[in-house]
Nucleic acid binder design. Structure first.
Lengths: 220, 220
DNA sequence: GCGACGTCGGGAAATTTGCCCGGCTTCTCC
DNA sequence: GGAGAAGCCGGGCAAATTTCCCGACGTCGC
């Protein structure tokens, strides 16, 4: 990266929203938007081609999501600077993003200046978190909600995904070549491990943890 | 409204996103953004103060949501032109918005030109729907999914809300001063009326129909 | 080889679900 | 004012599921 001219790539599936990022960022001297992508796959491809100094990335996108895009880009270039800018004011998402290799997490509810400041912070080597996410993370620390991906085994996680996909116990049993009884046992075990009493709580916990995004809901 | 100078109010809880709308719309000669609001209550207040010729409105916002804001504005000014511009590519939302009095529904995934065209269509007296919403509505017509708000009685709807709020049957019974048995019966009746087999399907249907927005999920 | 752990499922009691019923109130329409 | 429809409430009971226990098997690390 040259010092005087920092290049940026924007990743968001909404073209009009990218227009907003661009307007805000290009008001800053020394920042230049050189690429835009509408989904994770395009982001990865364009990153390799354009080598921007920083990526501003949304999380919820069709196809390959933001988290996976971060992982891929960081695998290809471990020094990549990626700043997540999303609507999800959600500690679970922030944790996932940072673990995947993001250098910051700012919510879209923040004033535009916050984005500008976060960009500067990332260039300065700091981890940029907006105040509301600080707060969310603090709360989640206190709540100590069990993280599904951490406590569940691979098999349990798979059954959970299928349950959330509106499969009946019998369908899952047939799919996995196990007895319906085992599915029932796993279902029970999952609820126990996650400290959840009903299926309704289970779905809501899954939503909070991003296991099921609102996007997928329609695609039943 | 004067012919040469059409005034617009933007409503969206994300400041950066409003920046995008503004950039796209003000490129058009004859359009001028004269107000911005970040939630439904502010939108209603500002509408009365500024009397814009058109409102571009998001749906999911903190506090008073977009649907309710549309209702209020239209009650105060039955001729108000309101165009919904949202990320929700969801037939149920579109139906609610149009019923509340919106003159159009465009999703944020549409190219920026689609927004410009929709604005022009609304000014021309047409109902503006983006192609993906046309498609969603067509599908929903074929699927004929039961609409919770239509088929459920008030009591049933109330129980449904409480169930979704992660209350146990016993809590609901105590809250409504009825027997747990009745709650169980209502729970069963709700699932029957909505043509749903499990609680998981029930939650997902509620999400599709906007009874439970992703925003609320965290606030358990 | 031995303990820890994940996977798979049987068994049995406890609970919930699915579906029926009848009684009660309210509202409408004649 | 009476007949009928529709909503609300809850008992009853068989069937199904959930809950919790158990043992068997494979595999991995030490």
């Amino acid at each position: 990266m040259t010092q005087g001219r920092r290049t940026i790539m924007l990743v968001d599936d909404h073209a009009v929203v990218r227009e907003g990022y661009r307007a805000v960022l290009e008001k800053q001297p020394g920042l230049k938007v050189i690429a835009e992508a509408g989904d994770g796959a395009e982001a990865y491809r364009l990153y390799k081609e354009k080598r921007p100094d920083l990526v501003v990335m949304d999380l919820t996108m069709p196809g390959i999501g933001g988290i996976e895009a971060i992982r891929r880009i960081r695998q290809w270039d471990p020094d990549a600077r990626i700043l997540v800018f999303t609507m999800h004011q959600n500690a679970a998402f922030a944790v996932q993003a940072i673990r995947a290799g993001a250098r910051g997490y700012v919510t879209k509810t923040s004033p535009p200046e916050a984005l500008v400041r976060a960009v500067a912070d990332v260039f300065a080597g700091k981890v940029a978190l907006s105040p509301d996410i600080d707060h969310e993370l603090a709360l989640s620390r206190l709540a100590e909600e069990t993280v599904a991906a951490d406590v569940l085994t691979a098999r349990e996680f798979e059954v959970l995904r299928l349950l959330l996909a509106e499969r009946t116990a019998d369908e899952i049993a047939a799919l996995l070549h196990i007895s319906p009884k085992t599915v029932a046992n796993l279902h029970y075990l999952i609820k126990t491990k996650l400290g959840v009493g009903s299926d309704i709580e289970l779905v809501r916990l899954a939503l909070r943890q991003g296991l099921l995004t609102q996007m997928e809901i329609g695609a039943s």
